[in-house]
Design a protein around this nucleic acid. Structure first.
Lengths: 215, 215
DNA sequence: CGATCAGTTGACCCAAATCAAGCTCCGTGG
DNA sequence: CCACGGAGCTTGATTTGGGTCAACTGATCG
């Protein structure tokens, strides 16, 4: 696990949205660690314990099958906390998507952090369960629509949405191939539902249509 | 929400496995409520608050799309606790699959149950995230294999597995149609991986094969 | 014993995967 | 400043796994 600052870190678009004052009572905060794009933050099977809070950038949480198929179970954006587990082992991988700053919290052994962690765990649980509906019962357009709505809402409901992740990541989050994701984006553009300002920057033109698609 | 004892309750196969001594400290336990097959325990949008512990029977947690598509996000068997939410509202439906007994725990307002609930929430989160991999990246055989392994392990790893739920429920849990579930069961029978003792009772003949399939 | 509901099986179809080119956007170095 | 190279993305042709539709079978229960 390495945490080196990459030569050049693009901050402009990754500034922590609401510099989150959430500092865990009793937990000792380490200085921010930097991870360059693609760097592993922790791996499945590693010992768990510390908590991570995204300062800027974005993180993907995922699992792999033996043959390399990947499922991203969650993205964590600026302000969000991750790294807690049911036992002392990590069950997933965590990687920086872009140049990412992460604040590490060590919880003194014997200290009970339940009160602080429970709401995070519950929100994660609800999100995961809602995502199950998307993966289990929605088609490609519905999945992408749900994804764009989710990203928009997590960025304050603005019509301009910044995607920190590649089409590949989106595919592995939505259970689709990169080609299908690309085709759906094209379809949504043709329908005038969205507009691409750049590859990773999307403007939502017809929010209602998108919402209706994501059901 | 009704909780009437059905005329005749089949207990024999639904006796609580390990009569779970888990009684929440400080929470006041109500007597066991009975729900006949198909009865609603709570609905999406209802006010949340109390916790439920399955005494016998089984419960399905699910969500619906506008057109009726259903995704079951979890099954809860004897001994398991459910009903906690991120806020004061239920985001899912909970229904008794069969005649089911549920112990209700009211938590006195002002009382902090974080310590007791967190491990439950974390295990639920891990399970949900693992299920995301199944729904996002596995094919029909792999899904059914993973399901049978999961059910077996949750019943103590015995080779004989009792399925509390219908093929329809299994389909809505695995993101498959009832026909596909049925066809996969047939294929697994033909391959000699499982044997049906009855429709809802399955014997695992080749555990290793099943494990390898579920990856 | 029918009646009914759950499950199985078969024929056909379609949405998304796969396979295969291209294209676009950048970063790098001449 | 432009040529080059490569990764990321798009588009098209084809295939296929699982969905849909439909008929049948088998269990369960008045």
């Amino acid at each position: 696990m390495y945490a080196q600052a990459s030569a050049k870190i693009e901050l402009s678009s990754y500034v922590a949205r609401q510099s989150p004052a959430l500092v865990f009572d009793g937990a000792t905060a380490q200085p921010v660690s930097f991870f360059p794009a693609g760097a592993e933050i922790y791996a499945q099977g590693e010992k768990a314990g510390v908590l991570y809070q995204v300062e800027f950038g974005a993180v993907r949480i995922y699992r792999l099958l033996a043959d390399g198929r990947r499922q991203i179970s969650a993205f964590h954006l600026a302000g969000e906390t991750f790294g807690f587990e049911a036992d002392t082992t990590h069950h997933f991988f965590a990687e920086a998507i872009n140049a990412t700053g992460v604040r590490v919290f060590r919880t003194p052994s014997g200290m009970d952090m339940s009160r602080q962690i429970l709401p995070l765990a519950l929100r994660g649980l609800t999100r995961a369960q809602e995502h199950l509906l998307v993966l289990g019962r929605q088609n490609a357009i519905e999945r992408v629509a749900a994804f764009l709505v989710e990203m928009s809402e997590r960025q304050g409901g603005l019509q301009q949405v910044e995607l920190a992740m590649s089409r590949n990541d989106i595919g592995d989050y939505l259970g689709l191939t990169i080609e299908t994701v690309s085709r759906v984006f094209t379809r949504l553009k043709e329908k005038g539902v969205i507009r691409l300002l750049s590859l990773r920057s999307i403007e939502i033109l017809k929010r209602d249509t998108l919402l209706a698609m994501g059901e």
